[in-house]
Simulated assay, not measured.
Amino acid sequence: MRSISATMFMTLDGVVQGLGRPDEDTRGGFTHGGWGAAYNDEVLGAEMGKGMAQSGAMLFGRRTWEDFIGVWASATDGNPFSTHMNAARKYVVSSSLADAGAWENSVLLRNVDDVAALDEELSIIGSAALVRSLHAAGLIDVYTLVIHPLTLGTGARLFDGPAPVTEFELTSSVTTPKGVIVATYGRVTSR
């Protein structure tokens, strides 16, 4: 049975753009890249490790997949995240890529319908545009929102436009020593 979970790193004002480094995503003149680095700690690392330990394949939008290639595909540092990222089956959704051969174990999908046709557990890290499309199609089952205690005022937000009414319930939450809230929500299927 297909299940899709999305992990989204965001600010209090909902910005999901450019978490990792200054040059990660400068679209729209975004100048606040790298905002998440100051909030990393052991508790956050352990929480993200729990997600990596779950079975299933990974799902990416093209931009995130290409960015992750530069970080993970050639990593030989012995980091368990590197090992996991390279060994996992990775689906990339893109209408513009010619193939997915740039990163081992990657499979190219063309659209949301191709994702809907999959029958396995899938996890997404980032890929906000893809998450918005999957949410609009009613395909996101679980959100893990990693909420950082800052506002940026500008930048792409998780839901920039209208989103369908979908009810979720809090299934777990952890607060890190640096004030990051890791909140997991599961979709309510019926009441």
Rank of each mutant, 00 (worst) to 15 (best):
K178H: 10
W103E: 05
L122F: 04
T26D: 03
K178T: 15
D119P: 00
L109A: 07
R21A: 10
V180N: 00
A163G: 10
I4V: 15
G70S: 08
E169D: 06
P162T: 14
F30W: 10
G78A: 10
G153K: 11
L122R: 05
N86K: 15
V115T: 07
T166P: 00
T166Q: 14
Y39T: 10
A163Q: 14
D119K: 06
L59C: 08
M85E: 12
G155P: 06
F60Q: 03
A73G: 05
G186R: 14
M52V: 08
M1W: 01
N79G: 07
N86R: 15
Y143F: 15
V107Q: 06
E47Q: 15
H84R: 05
I181A: 11
W103F: 14
S127P: 04
D141H: 06
T151R: 07
G161D: 14
A57S: 15
A37S: 09
S74Q: 14
I4K: 01
V131T: 12
F9M: 13
S127H: 08
E169K: 13
R187Q: 10
A156K: 12
S190Q: 14
L150D: 06
R63F: 09
M10Q: 13
G45Q: 15
R63E: 02
I124P: 04
R187P: 01
H135V: 14
I140G: 02
V107S: 02
T144Q: 07
S95V: 12
D23V: 01
N105S: 06
M85A: 15
V115I: 11
L97W: 03
A156W: 00
I125H: 08
V43S: 02
D23A: 10
A136N: 12
D13V: 11
S190N: 13
L59P: 00
D13H: 08
Y39W: 13
T26Q: 11
G70R: 01
A57I: 10
A129L: 08
R110H: 15
T83G: 04
R63K: 15
P80H: 08
S3I: 12
H148M: 12
N111P: 00
Y185E: 01
E121K: 02
T76I: 01
E42T: 13
V146M: 05
I69G: 03
A137G: 09
S55Y: 04
V142N: 05
A87V: 06
G51W: 13
S190T: 15
M8Y: 03
G34I: 05
P149D: 12
Y185W: 13
G28A: 06
A163V: 15
T171V: 15
G155Q: 10
F81D: 07
W103I: 04
F159V: 11
G34F: 04
F68C: 03
I125A: 04
N79M: 09
G14T: 11
T7P: 00
E169M: 09
G36S: 12
E42L: 11
S96F: 06
A100L: 05
